[in-house]
Simulated assay, not measured.
Amino acid sequence: MNFFLQGLTMGIAYDAPIGLANLFVINSALTQSRRKSLLTAIIIIIFDVSLAFACFFGIGAIMKKFEWLQLIILLVGSLIVIYMGINLLRSQTTDISAEATTEMTLFKTISSAFVVIWFNPQAIIDGSMMLGAFQVTLPSYSHPIFIAGVGIASALWFILLSIIVSKFKDKFNAKVLRIINLVCGFIIILYGGKLFWNFITLLLA
C-alpha cells in the first residue's frame, strides 16, 4: 500500500503543474460538449500513462543516447505545437453552448493528444529523471504497484479537471472564453517556441 501511495502522490506531482496536457484538457472542457471533453481527457490519460510507463522504464536514457532522435522529435513537435497555438488564436467563439461548439473529430483529438504528450522531449527527459530516479530506489517487486499508482493519479487528475471545468463553463460568456483561448494559445506557442529553441541549441551544439 505504501508503494501505491508513493506512486499516487508522484503521479499528482507529475501531472499537476500547468503544461500542454492540462491546457488541452481545459480548452476541450470549455469548448466541447461534456461527453466529448471527457473522451478527450480519457485519450490524454492513455497517452500520459503510456509516457509515464516509458519514462519509468528508461526511454529518456534512449533519447539522451541518440541525439538524432531528440532532434527529430524537437523539430516536428515544436512546429506542430506552434501550429496548435496559432489555431487557438485564430478560433472565433461566439457561443459556448454545446449545440454551437464545433466538435473536433476523433482522429484530430487523438493525433493532437499524442503530439501534446509524446512530442515534448523535455517532458520525456524530466519524467525519466523523476520516475526513473524513483525506480532505482524501489525494490523490483514494487514496480507494478508504484506505476499503477502513477496511472491512477493521472486518471483522477485529468477526469476531475475535465468535469470541474465543464461544470462551470456556463459561467463564462463568449468574450471570456475568447480571452481564455487567446491566453492558452499564447502559452502553447511559447511552449512550441521553447521546443524549437531547444532544437536550434542542440543542432548547433
Rank of each mutant, 00 (worst) to 15 (best):
M1Q: 05
M1T: 04
F3Y: 12
F3N: 05
F3H: 07
Q6C: 11
G7F: 11
G7Q: 02
G11P: 02
G11V: 02
I12G: 05
I18Y: 04
A21V: 14
N22D: 06
N22I: 03
L23F: 03
F24M: 14
I26C: 03
N27P: 13
N27I: 00
A29W: 01
R35D: 08
R35T: 13
K36D: 14
S37F: 03
S37D: 05
L38P: 08
T40E: 07
T40Q: 08
I42W: 13
I44D: 05
I44H: 07
I44V: 15
I46Q: 08
I46D: 06
L51A: 08
L51C: 01
A52W: 05
F53V: 10
C55E: 08
F56N: 07
F57P: 04
I59V: 13
G60T: 01
I62P: 01
M63A: 01
M63D: 07
K64M: 14
L71V: 04
I72W: 00
I72V: 15
I73L: 15
L74G: 05
V81M: 13
I82W: 05
Y83A: 14
Y83P: 12
G85V: 03
N87L: 13
R90A: 11
S91P: 06
T94V: 14
D95P: 09
I96S: 12
S97R: 14
S97A: 11
S97N: 06
T102P: 01
T102F: 11
E103W: 02
E103T: 14
T105H: 01
T109E: 12
S111C: 02
A113K: 09
V115F: 06
I117F: 02
F119H: 04
A123R: 09
I125Y: 06
L131D: 07
L131N: 04
A133Q: 14
Q135L: 08
Q135N: 12
Q135I: 12
P139A: 07
S140W: 10
Y141N: 07
H143T: 01
P144M: 09
I147A: 04
G151A: 14
I152T: 04
A153D: 05
S154A: 15
S154R: 07
W157L: 09
F158G: 04
I159P: 00
L161I: 04
I163C: 10
V165F: 06
A174D: 14
K175E: 09
V176T: 09
R178M: 10
R178Y: 08
I179Y: 09
I180P: 08
L182A: 15
V183L: 10
G185H: 13
G185P: 12
I188T: 12
L190I: 15
G192C: 01
G193R: 06
K194E: 11
F196D: 03
T201Y: 11
L202H: 12
L202D: 12
L202N: 12
L203S: 15
A205I: 00
